[in-house]
Simulated scan of single mutants.
Amino acid sequence: MEAFIAVAAEPATLAMLAAVFVAGTLRGFAGFGAGLVFIPVAGALIGPRAAVIVLWAIDSLPTLPILLPALRHADYRSVLPAVLGTAIAIPFGVHVLATLDPVLLRWGMSVVVVVLVILLFSGMRFEGPRRRASAFGVGLIGGVLGGATQLSGPPMVVYWMSGTEAAARIRANLIVFFAFGTVLSGIAFYFNGIFSAESLMRAAIGTPVYFAALMTGQRLFSLASERAFRAVAITLIVMAAIVSLPVFDGMLRPQ
């Protein structure tokens, strides 16, 4: 209990909760984006490996209220091949997480975030045939990113946004895809010894905040303009990616 209280009182943990709320709100609204906001900021505050584990934990069971309705609307002809590709590639990403230098990994995560956000913002789309093989290939890319950084979503977002599906279908596909990915990542994390008691304690502290944010985001999905919200979300994501670069550690890390 003393260790839990000590972790909860750390300035880095308290600052992390703000990122948890923003990430959860975006996830509840759009079905994706939690990692884009949370990983860069939390990676600077508590380290990239701890950030990945915290996000994995808070984005598991607390997402059931948005997962259960999505199960009825997802396109499994596209989702399941993507999940298969992700399952094959996740162990490679987890190996990168376990072995790469933390500072180098943080630089890589921030660069990936900025590039993918630019792609989403620019309107660039995947224009190839929408076959099971293409979904599988994009899933491979997402799996490597997901295992290393919990950022498996952007490739799938770009892919599914390229079609004619309604926003509700795309959102459902992403939510179901992430649910499978969470299970696969957890298995890979366990066998690679990535979990730590301190990270799980931080996750326990952040879970109630994340759950409340998910419900807030789901409510906003039915009220807010998609165009306006996307503009705000992309702005937040870009700011998070830039501010969390290692060169800004003096601002984010308590001295």
Rank of each mutant, 00 (worst) to 15 (best):
V103K: 03
E10Q: 11
V183F: 15
S185Q: 12
F189Y: 13
N192F: 14
G139C: 04
L245F: 14
T13E: 01
S196K: 03
P246T: 04
G35F: 00
A188I: 03
F189C: 10
A213G: 05
G85L: 11
M215S: 08
E226D: 07
G33E: 11
T149S: 15
W160A: 15
N173W: 09
A70N: 05
S225N: 06
A18H: 01
S110W: 04
I88H: 04
A57K: 02
T63Y: 09
P69L: 12
P65I: 14
A44G: 15
I53K: 02
A241F: 14
F126I: 10
L252F: 08
P246M: 08
V176M: 08
F92D: 01
E198L: 10
H73A: 12
V22M: 12
V115D: 09
S244Y: 15
P155A: 05
F4Q: 04
V209S: 11
L200P: 04
I141P: 09
G147W: 10
F195A: 05
E165P: 00
V54I: 05
F229R: 01
A168G: 04
R171T: 01
V112H: 04
T25Q: 09
Y210T: 09
S225L: 04
F177W: 02
F191M: 11
G143E: 08
T86H: 06
R72I: 11
F191G: 03
T99L: 13
A203V: 03
A9F: 09
L104M: 15
A228Q: 10
T216A: 15
W56S: 13
P254T: 03
F229D: 08
T149D: 06
A197L: 15
L223H: 13
A8Q: 07
F180S: 08
L104E: 12
A19F: 00
D249H: 04
M161D: 10
S122H: 06
A8L: 13
L223Q: 12
Y76M: 00
G93D: 07
A9T: 03
T13S: 08
F178H: 06
G206P: 03
T235Y: 07
A9V: 02
A70Q: 02
G85T: 02
P62H: 06
L104F: 14
A50P: 01
R125M: 11
L17K: 00
I58E: 04
T13Q: 02
F180W: 05
R169H: 11
R219N: 12
F126H: 06
G31P: 06
R27I: 07
P155M: 07
A44V: 10
S225P: 03
A57P: 01
G123S: 07
F248E: 03
W56D: 10
M156S: 05
R77Y: 09
T164P: 02
A9D: 10
I118M: 15
G143A: 14
